[in-house]
Write a protein that binds this DNA or RNA. Sequence first.
DNA 1: CGGTACATGTAATCTGTTACATGATTCA
DNA 2: TGAATCATGTAACAGATTACATGTACCG
Lengths: 177, 177
Amino acid sequence: MSLPHAILTALIEADLTGYALAKQFDVSLGFFWQASHQQIYRELKRLHTQGQIAVQEVSQMGRPDKRVYSLTDTGRQALEDWVQAPTPRRNSKDELFIKLYNMGTVPLESMLRAIAERRQQHVSRLALYRKIEHRSYANPQTLSAHKKGVYLSLLAGIRQEEAALTWCEEALILLRA
Amino acid sequence: MSLPHAILTALIEADLTGYALAKQFDVSLGFFWQASHQQIYRELKRLHTQGQIAVQEVSQMGRPDKRVYSLTDTGRQALEDWVQAPTPRRNSKDELFIKLYNMGTVPLESMLRAIAERRQQHVSRLALYRKIEHRSYANPQTLSAHKKGVYLSLLAGIRQEEAALTWCEEALILLRA
DNA sequence: CGGTACATGTAATCTGTTACATGATTCA
DNA sequence: TGAATCATGTAACAGATTACATGTACCG
């Protein structure tokens, strides 16, 4: 039930097309909430009929016409209400852990491979997060309230990746012993 | 696409009813993969028509009749194949981070409340994991291969909760400064 | 007498994924 | 000439959530 709120959130900073929204959901906000363009276009229609966003059609030369969405007062209010409401915890799902419950029935090598592969993914992702951190959030205390929020999301990502990476190392050591 | 494999995995150790499976998905395996009883009963039917599990109907006195499911050789093989196949990473979704992107538009107090509440959830969950760890996995090196796998899942949960807890503390410090 | 455990389901809805569809422009 | 970017959509299907539905036995 939070894709609509993620969309409204992306529209706080700037008016965007569905296409541009889909790109946002590949980076930044997208590190913590993903959505395909199909989902986004579907949701934009819903939000529009509910009066939470407004559309402006823009004709372009040489490019397809586009529909630029912006927050309405209704939408802004709905978003604020949602932000202040309780925040349920999502259940995390990871196939890797189900696979671990199968240890003993498959060759150890295939488990080690899966963990080593996962380890590499965490290394890359962590490097990306750290790069963004150094580039844009070197002095957290001096940031505006809004940027502190964005920074804290990034920091959460960093802590998650570090923890996952630590676990991979520990798992490899235990299984190779 | 992994609920069926999670079910097959639970059936490795013991034959179970749909009801008992649903309970497993509240603890143990359920820490890493959740499913409601509705999903489970639906999936059991599917797995049965595919020949991956067998059923035995058991009449009981004073209690409803039950259907006890067990792995077939086909199911066991399908599970092994899946375990050795590549493991995609799930996208993590957390509303709390979308809310953080809204900082500056709502009272700081409500953010602090949300983070403090989340902090408390991590404290409880971590305590639970640690209790299980001390009770059943005090000496990881001495465990059987299968139990090492189960233990490593638990350890992953511990590392996740620790990281999340650390982040909560850091966030509260930055926002209160 | 009320709640919990046991035990299994259907129906409706919502969310997410995959596949299909179109079409111009820019860059290598 | 072929790939990538911009731009918006439909359709089908799969997966997850919520609500509804039934009925016994045991414990306090």
